[in-house]
Design a protein around this nucleic acid. Structure first.
Lengths: 192, 192
DNA sequence: AGGTCTATCAAGCACATGCTTGACAACTGT
DNA sequence: ACAGTTGTCAAGCATGTGCTTGATAGACCT
């Protein structure tokens, strides 16, 4: 209950708005009791970090038997779902990313989350490149970075609307996908 | 001197590390004197915002007679220069972006900076699309968003090294540029 | 039953921090 | 010359905030 309350407060007001007293009041306990369970504020933040990590993991449902294009599409949609329906997750993530430069423990958490995300994207891209649905001359790592940065553009609220987000994804997908003869006016050979 | 000191402190320790007393000590004045010039902390932050804006403007040198590809390349390089040689600018920018969701005045500043940036990129892309060096089927706004998000990925320290940054740019450029016959094994017609 | 551990509370300590007060001196305009 | 303005300072006020103290009651073990 304590970490959940802290999670909500961070999502809404950021680290700046995090007061141990407030959390205690929200949960309905004395602040001394809170400090009994979490001796320092750092410990509490650590607890929130673990909650964030476990929630992301819990929601990362592995889907079997999907094509690369389907997987990519699902990942876009997941991002949109987070953005529209679960903004607290992204809000907390954003806060942690913001604090990462100044806090080694948080930096490690963020790096772990980020590496997992990048690995997922690379996996999808590799699959698509191998089965011919994505361009053959794709640099997997760079492409993954661009995709993640674009999504992060949304998360960091550089994009403002769902439609902006979708348009960006549409353009990215166009770039990723291999040429289709029926979509082009001339035969295109991409693979060297 | 006061806003410059505040600028440096924000670049190094973020808003969390900003204390009026510290700024006063850094400048060598009494904190009451500081509050004489900047009645509230908000005023001081406002001063830093203006400094940031004017510095970005001062460094945005308009270059004449360059091709779209050259302009894009210059913009990449500018970003790298900021990253390598002027990290304080990006650090402060990052802090302001982080605070934007919770502060209307800062949000306006960030939107202004961001809109200017996007307009520059769109201008370049349009030029390149018209002269045939970029793909004809580019959605200017989406492409600009992707480019900016990628750069912001660096700024937000999702990318860690200059090489990561360059690789990302290389991939993006590949996507942007129109097909060249001498680079491909078959003739490609992109324009509809 | 007695001892120990755990969760809880009211009260408060210690310190940080934005900002104020009241005084003084230098400068400025008339 | 004098009144007003401006920049400066030492001291301090008011409040917020992480965390501690000392006490109490219940749970658990032997």
């Amino acid at each position: 209950m304590i970490v959940e309350a802290a999670f909500k407060v961070i999502a809404k007001d950021g680290f700046e708005g995090l007061r141990t007293r407030d959390i205690a009041r929200l949960v309905g306990i004395n602040s001394a009791t809170l400090h009994h369970h979490f001796p320092t504020k750092e410990n509490l933040i650590e607890g929130v970090a673990n909650l964030l990590l476990s929630r992301f993991r819990a929601e990362a449902a592995a889907v079997e038997d999907e094509t690369a294009v389907e997987a990519l599409d699902r990942q876009w949609k997941d991002a949109i779902v987070y953005y529209m329906d679960r903004p607290e997750m992204l809000g907390v993530y954003r806060e942690f990313v913001g604090r990462a430069p100044r806090d080694p423990a948080i930096r490690r958490l963020v790096q772990r989350l980020h590496a997992g995300w990048q690995a997922d994207v690379i996996e999808t891209l590799k699959k698509g490149r191998n089965d011919g649905s994505f361009r053959a001359d794709l640099d997997l790592e760079s492409a993954a970075r661009i995709i993640i940065s674009t999504v992060w553009g949304l998360v960091a609220q550089i994009f403002s609307t769902k439609d902006d987000f979708k348009a960006g994804f549409h353009e990215l997908t166009t770039w990723l996908i291999a040429e289709q003869e029926d979509k082009r006016s001339a035969k295109t050979i991409r693979r060297k």
